[in-house]
Nucleic acid binder design. Structure first.
Lengths: 180, 180
DNA sequence: GTTCACATGTAACAGGTTACATGATTGG
DNA sequence: CCAATCATGTAACCTGTTACATGTGAAC
């Protein structure tokens, strides 16, 4: 999913600024399956505007800098839906955590304990973000997508808690540690 | 997880060729959380060799082209373990499937049915790949990592099967479809 | 005879990120 | 006064993919 489609997709729901797109991607209904930086968002918004898929208006606010609020155009909606009808590419999952786990038999108990606790902590944070996003979006597609994330986060937390002993006791390497 | 570390990580377990690294990343114990193309693997192997982290030998085989079999050096192992001790970056999950789901209320029933069946099909394939990898790797770290993937794939399949009605019936848009 | 699996590699390109640059206003 | 939040943007860089280029031998 590229930044271009993300911008169109967010602007389909709401008129927002580049700044807010980053927030929504990090915290809103998109939070668990997409990411974006300012360095990609702002140039993309300008390009989409040049192409006539977006328009913007300047909004002055007191107490805050003025901002460029973008809206999607009819042509923008068409472009979005053309993309939505293309065949989806497979999901991408990358995990440094699991990579390190492969070498658990060769790592110190402290390293492994920290690795696991960091992962569980991140999963719990992710779960909380999802649950707070779920309260803000009532419409069915978003509920489905957030529910998917919740289900996977819960499954991951449960799995790690039930199986972390496979990592942390390494009888081949530290029999004394395993014995305690 | 970059290709450099992937190469070192695979070569820690076995002496292999660039061609096999791609296969292992796609089918072996790494299959669900990493990806790599030849265009990144071959230049990386050459660079790691220049840096003294790998060595290679030519193996002639009858019936097949000769091949360059790489081995990790002591310095390569050191570099790998230095990386394994760095703080892991959070997992990355990207899903065009979930993105499209957000717009379910605006998509045709056929499009949604195909979307869901493609996703379930891919998840089942992924699950099979994981289960066949599990049979090949007995050591604890790999079992943990593969088990994590299995747990998440199963959770995803269950979630989609139990909740796809949220996507496919869109009463706001097609009341007649919802009524049947 | 042509397709498949094996095998290695390059070059152009795409799609990002990171760090930098700027600046207003609020709250501690 | 300093940090944080809001707000926009650029430029250099990095990492990796795609497409191309090449070649062997087996199986059908």
């Amino acid at each position: 999913m590229n930044i271009r489609t993300l911008c169109l997709g967010i602007l389909f729901f709401d008129d927002v600024t580049g700044y807010e797109i980053k927030k929504l991607a990090a915290e809103g209904r998109f939070n668990h399956f997409i990411e974006a930086s300012y360095g990609s968002i702002y140039p993309t918004l300008n390009r989409l505007t040049d192409e006539g898929l977006l328009v913007w208006r300047e909004e002055t606010q007191d107490g805050k800098p003025s901002r460029k609020v973008y809206s999607i155009t009819d042509r923008g909606r068409d472009a979005l839906f053309a993309t939505l009808h293309e065949e989806t590419r497979p999901d991408i999952f990358k995990s440094e955590f699991l990579f390190v786990c492969l070498y658990s038999a060769y790592l110190e108990t402290d390293t492994l304990k920290k690795l696991v606790s960091t992962q569980v902590h991140r999963l719990r944070e992710g779960l909380e973000r999802l649950q707070s996003a779920a309260q803000q979006c009532s419409h069915p597609g978003s509920q489905f997508a957030i529910g998917y994330g919740v289900a996977l986060h819960k499954a991951a937390i449960d799995y790690v808690n039930e199986n972390k002993h496979l990592l942390e006791n390494s009888p081949e390497i530290w029999p004394d540690v395993a014995a305690q």
